[in-house]
Each structure stands twice: as structure tokens, then as C-alpha cells.
Amino acid sequence: MADPQIKWRKIKNDLFKGLVVFLSLLATLPLLLILFYILRQGFSSINWSFLTNLPKPVGESGGGISNAIVGTLIIVGTAAVMAIPLGVLAGIYLNEQRNSKVARYCDLAIDVLQGIPSIVIGIIIYEWVVRTMGGFSAFSGSAALALMMLPFIAKTTQETLKLVPNHLKEASLALGVPYYKTVLKVIVPAGLSGILSGAILGIARVIGETAPLLFTAFGNPFMSTELSKPMSSLPLVIFNYATSPYEDWHQLAWGASLILILIVLTLNMITKFIESRWKIQF
């Protein structure tokens, strides 16, 4: 029954599948190229002095990125402290009061916030925080990053809690547990893995952001742990060194990129681990 029509349709079918597979494999090419390139270039830069030294003046070798690593941890850590509680609470509200008018506006606001380009967030925080404080500061950088994390954490919290089946809540209320306790001790713990991975993913997303830090945290060639002063950070250092003409600064930038990517990958892996091992069980 070798009907030529059928044969032709089969050929088209196989060709299409081949095309899909081919394009999909091609799509992974940039990722592999980037990761291998950074690994190769950055690996040679990483040694103990690289991680513990401060940057050296132009033209002198042996500089390091210790202040950038510390700076990133402090700035992102502070942002997380600000954004996670607010975001989780907002997510809880959105899920619990989903029909109220305020919740609908809040949902809208979060969607808008999520889309704001990072550079525009930099402008906003410059006006609100940097001008008010009269100076660049790590805190303003954290504020900018917190503003970026907030909608993401709120959304993931809301989505996670949506999945918690209603009967848990109803059973708890039926047993006489007050509403606030039901939320805090029954619903939220049931969704804890999702909320946690949302928070960690939120951190992973902002840890590499440069644009909002350009005119808030500003950068600092020295080690600083004060929130009220400018602070260095890994993405800023990468940007400045990458666009410079000095070879050894390029090397530093590759090393810093490798460190940054390792941190981001680790955070992502932790998230996947939490999601797989710690599934919601009802």
C-alpha cells in the first residue's frame, strides 16, 4: 500500500521532527559555548590571592576581588532580608483574599513591578534613596535589588499556596484553629518548599544584576562593610574590568564571572533539590 501521498506525508513528518530536534540542539549551543569559555578563561585566574586580595591600581598585577565578593554577599543579603518577608506576606495575602479589590490591584501592581526594566529601577531608587541620603550607598543598591526581588517572591509564594488543597484549610478551621494560625501553621508550612525555592531563585536572579547598582551602590576599590557607603560587587567589577583595555583586568573579570556563575548555578541546584526532595504531601 505504498500510496505516494502517504509516503510524502510520512517524509514531511520525519523532516519536521528532525528540524525540531536540530533546532533544539542548536539552541543549547550558546549555553555550552558560554559556560565552557568562562570556565576555561576564568579557571586560570582563580587562586587564593585572587579571592582574598583587594584590587590594585591600574597597571599593577596581583589584584583580587575580595571586596567584590563580600560586597555582593552584603548587598544581596540585605536585599533578601527586605524583600523576602514582604514578598511572602504579599503572596499570602494574594492567595487568601483573592477576590478582594485590594488583592486585584495588588496583583496588577506586582505584574507591573515585575516588568520594570532594571535600569528604570535604578533611576527610581536614585531619586528616592541616593538623593535623600546624600550619597551612594550599599543600602540603596539593596533597595533596588529588593524592589526587583519582591514581585518574583510574591508570585511564587502565591502560586505555591494556590496548590495547597483547600481541605487542609477547611479541616483546620473546622477544628477551631483561628484563621491566622491556620495560615501560619498549616497552609504556609505545607507550601514551604515552594516558598523557599522561590526565595532562593529570587536571590539567584538579582545576584547578577548590574544596571540597578550603577548609580546606587556605585562601587568601591576598598573593602567595605558599611551599608551607608558605596560598596563593590561582582557584577560591577565584571562590567568595569570587561570594558577596560587592560589584559590583566580582563583576566580578573573572567575569574569574577566564573565565581558569579558558580554561585548562581549552586543556588539553582539547591532550588531543584528542595523542589524534588521536599514535595508537598497532603
Partner: peptide, 29 residues
């Protein structure tokens, strides 16, 4: 009307030209 937190000891903040940057980075070091 503007407030700044009391500056901690011994840091100065400057910004500007890239023209003298190689010199300034050496000088400040």
C-alpha cells in the same frame, strides 16, 4: 534640609574624569 549619616573615619569619595584615572589610582593607593 538634607541629612547625611555621620561619615565613618577616613574615607573620601570622588568621581569624575577617566583622563587622570591611571594617575589618581596610583596616587590614592
Amino acid at each position: 534640609t538634607e541629612q547625611t549619616p555621620a561619615p565613618k573615619a577616613n574615607t573620601l569619595i570622588g568621581a569624575g574624569a577617566t583622563f587622570p584615572y591611571p594617575l589618581y589610582s596610583k596616587m590614592f593607593d
